[in-house]
Design a binder for these strands. Structure first.
Lengths: 338, 338
DNA sequence: CTGAAAGCGCTTACAG
DNA sequence: CTGAAAGCGCTTACAG
């Protein structure tokens, strides 16, 4: 099974390999007639340039890499992940870029992967997800010189491109809405404390509560599982001064919280209001359907892809802030009844 | 930023490039002392062989490809997908193979991707998911000569390795269990009709019902969404002779069915028994928790990876059948009350 | 056990 | 506008 190469095309067209390369890559220096002849032959024989050879000779790989830490991150990533990848893909494939997805067990493996990718020029750039506080990857990627876009709140002194959704605004919108409904005791069941966006939300939540003179509940940090959500809810509702509203950092915990509250005899939303962050089909399936913070994750991914492509072409751009998640009121929020 | 190459290592070690290559790849023909010296230098400078060059020169890529059709498949794939990939990864990385994940919009794009992958030797083999009835990909992969493992029921005259879970056994177990509880009117809300495993389940369900002399309900085919599950449930419960039990082809539809039944005033499981296929955290979160068909998807993935690695090394193996999904009775099934 | 060389399939200056 | 050649960084027969 001999593969077809540019040498074969060159022979068939009666030109040199170099001319074939120029024609195939749309570079100048080939007459229109020759170019057309070459393209016709290439199409006819179904020619596909060998990408290893292309990359080895110095061409761009036209591939964008995305490493995901697993399985620790599983639950956090699931609802968000697929939509983000869809959005990335849509934008990338429009520019003839491919997305290379790679699962890694931990940060050292992720960093090693970046090193290898860049060493091989297997990717032209990468997307960095799930940013931690003082994330070591940022510095590493910067030193490596690998073009990158960070999806997450821009930390201090980052010279990488970054994109993120303004979680602070969403928190304020949520707290003010609940306060307007008469809630004075609002708790928050948060995700992993070390994640950068968790911190942003936590700080914003404290400020928003303080602004309305609420006696704030300390955030409960979890691993995003339903079990953790149920436990946190049980603890909160069992306390001497239970909250009248709880905001959850993901949909699974919100569903678990809803079921837990109902099991404990609470009527939702009369006894307890519930807000889920990141809407999903599950939020609409439960009863009553969950009030949720909704955002266009696919568009988030598309914008990240656009930013990365421009970073690859012209160096790091400035931070982009996408539309924040907005409240979609459904059946789990209402005025305080007591 | 000059990259380190085997030429640099060779110079430092005072040997030729060929010897470095042999030493690095653990091939014979190098004295222990030389090998050790070379390895020490390579480790010290953090040498990483350029994979494009390796592959271009004819080495194995040590990469396994997995193409996923999106976004049409989104919902079907989500619950199952992550666990499968985890299992694949675990087994592959133990053998120093990487997993290359690629989203494609449709079958032509998927087929083109296989062609490109194999043309470039970017992968040593692929995993084929979401098998359709008379799937054209099977024939294509076979003709291409690309090592592959099919995850799904082996069709007729397939010479590719395949692995699948015996859905027929799970269907029989479910029907017999429901019959033992006294159910005589059992319906099934199925997934996409064109998927091979859907057909296997449908045929098995009809046979199992016939074996117990049940007047079978025709399967309702859906797109796996909660909306479709709710609609199917509404239709079934509104019919003159409604079922007393419904089996759903995924967790989302089962949850939607449960909520729909409750909205229609039915008590679950007294008025209606519900079984979900493929267990998930959501199944345990709703109230009452869903009786589900549970299987070890991660192990399924690991076995698929093992089969592919052996296929790459020694050609296609025979079909592997993994443990079927087994019933995990929870709160949505019980004896018939009327 | 080791070295020198050809070759994998491209791209890209460099001459004409 | 076109051709001949060098080079990307490896692997692998082929000699010694």
């Amino acid at each position: 099974l001999k593969r077809t190469t540019i040498a074969d095309i060159a022979r068939a067209a009666g030109v040199s390999k170099g001319v074939v390369s120029y024609a195939l890559n749309g570079k100048p220096g080939v007459s229109a007639a020759t170019r057309e002849r070459i393209l016709a032959i290439a199409t006819q024989v179904g020619f596909r340039a060998n990408s290893s050879a292309r990359v080895l000779a110095g061409a761009a790989s036209k591939v964008v890499g995305l490493a995901l830490q697993r399985p620790a991150q599983t639950l956090e990533v699931e609802p968000f992940f697929m939509e983000l990848v869809s959005g990335l893909e849509a934008e990338l494939s429009a520019s003839n870029f491919a997305l290379l997805l790679h699962m890694v067990p931990d940060e050292p493996a992720e960093v090693e992967l970046y090193r290898q990718w860049w060493n091989d020029r297997r990717v032209d750039g990468v997307i960095i997800c799930d940013l931690y506080n003082n994330d070591a990857r940022v510095r590493f990627i910067q030193d490596l010189g690998l073009p990158a876009v960070i999806i997450g709140p821009p930390g201090s002194s980052i010279s990488l491109s970054s994109i993120w959704s303004d979680d602070e605004a969403s928190i304020w919108e949520t707290v003010e809405y609940l306060v307007a409904l008469g809630h004075r005791r609002i708790a928050r069941v948060a995700g992993i404390a070390e994640l950068a966006h968790t911190r942003v939300r936590t700080v914003a939540f404290e400020r928003a509560c303080a602004a309305s003179h609420l006696t704030g509940f300390p955030a409960t940090f979890t691993d995003y599982t339903g079990e953790a959500g149920a436990r946190a809810t049980r603890d909160l509702l069992s306390s001497p001064e239970p909250p009248t509203a709880i905001v959850y950092d993901n949909d699974i915990m919100a569903v678990a919280g809803l079921v837990t509250a109902q099991e404990m005899g609470r009527i939702v939303p009369a006894d307890l209001a519930i807000v889920a962050w990141d809407d999903s089909p599950i939020c609409r399936l439960v009863h009553p359907p969950l009030t949720a913070l909704t955002r266009d994750i696919g568009d988030y991914g598309s914008q990240a892809a656009r930013l990365l492509l421009s970073t690859i072409a012209q160096g790091p751009g400035k931070s982009v802030i996408v539309d924040p998640a907005h409240l979609t009121p459904r059946g789990t929020t209402g005025p305080v009844t007591k």
